[in-house]
């Protein structure tokens, strides 16, 4: 399910980037932050589906929502001090926070809703 969802997101974002003639760097960022969140949704929540909306305004705005309890994926990665301390996993959200201008989360009407700008 995860791979198929990522493939669908990739196709959707390819079309979006082409339609709005986004440069390679911006397209990379949009793809990365979306892929990281979608991967985490399927890895760490019970959600089977999600709603994705991407808008091209002054910035690229991304809304991602899925049915869930109030579990918040936006937990920061602990500071890495040493190679041996770096645990496998946990980097995805750190990259999302690093590669976005804004990144917010709220829980409303049984949905977890993420809003990002790139």
């Amino acid at each position: 399910m995860t791979f198929r969802a990522i493939e669908e997101v990739d196709r959707y974002l390819d079309t979006f980037c082409t339609k709005h003639t986004l440069n390679d760097d911006l397209c990379y960022r949009v793809r990365l932050v979306t892929e990281e969140l979608v991967t985490n949704i399927f890895k760490y929540t019970e959600a089977q589906t999600f709603d994705l909306t991407v808008r091209c305004l002054e910035d690229i705005e991304i809304d991602l929502a899925y049915l869930s309890n109030s579990f918040d994926l936006t937990v920061r990665k602990p500071e890495q001090k040493d190679l041996a301390d770096i645990k496998e996993g946990g980097l995805g959200l750190f990259l999302v926070e690093s590669m976005t201008k804004t990144f917010s989360y709220r829980h409303h009407n049984g949905k977890s809703i993420y809003k990002l700008t790139v």
Binding site: L32, E35, E36, E88, L91, F94
Partner: peptide, 10 residues
């Protein structure tokens, strides 16, 4: 992506 970074980390 972060999944790819895990390969580098390995």
């Amino acid at each position: 992506s972060s999944a790819g970074l895990q390969v580098v980390l390995k």
